[in-house]
Design a protein around this nucleic acid. Structure first.
Length: 163
DNA sequence: GCCAACGTTGGC
DNA sequence: GCCAACGTTGGC
């Protein structure tokens, strides 16, 4: 199976790259959007690369790299009445929501803001830069994944030291 | 806090 | 199956 690449959004106030660094690994629960669910349920495989994106932050942008480390399986928070992700329409016999586990790989030396993503010639067409792009789990091309990662490590995305 | 862009729900 | 109303996301 080919390795796939993804961008996954999280509000740093709720769960940040630092939280993942501390925890080493987390359940990516609470996704309640069908398109995002389908990506996780049908296409994600252990070993897939993930750009960890901070949404609703100032500024928003790419904070680091993570990796999918499980197959998809039902999201148990949908069965928990006390959870804010509780969904009565997702019975245990026929779960509606799925998730994967994600593990920490690295925090970028340099935070790559959305503005920088939008302005980088190597990242034209990337979904997160498109207006109204609300999807919290997005597919990413290998080239875009590598480019964001490169920016996060290098420090120069323009000017005489750009590459 | 505003609001545009989406996604979902439910009446018909 | 249409679509208006409503809820949510997320940049600004």
């Amino acid at each position: 199976m080919t390795k796939h690449y993804w961008l996954m959004k999280s509000e740093p106030g709720a769960y940040s790259i630092e939280d993942l660094q501390r925890d080493k690994k987390t359940h990516w629960d609470g996704v309640r959007n069908y398109q995002a669910r389908n990506f996780m349920r049908d296409q994600m495989k252990a070993g897939d690369g993930v750009i960890f994106y901070h949404s609703n932050a100032s500024p928003p942008g790419a904070a680091g790299v993570a990796e999918v480390c499980s197959q998809s399986y039902p999201d148990a928070t949908a069965w928990d009445k006390r959870s804010k992700y509780f969904d009565p329409k997702s019975p245990k016999q026929k779960p509606r929501w799925f998730l994967v586990d994600v593990k920490y790989i690295e925090k970028f030396k340099r935070f790559i803001s959305l503005e920088e993503i939008k302005n980088d010639p190597g990242l034209t067409g990337v979904m997160v830069a498109k207006k109204g792009s609300r999807l919290s789990v997005q597919p990413l091309s290998k080239e875009h994944f590598l480019r964001i990662r490169q920016l996060g490590h290098k420090g120069y995305s323009s000017g005489p030291y750009a590459y």
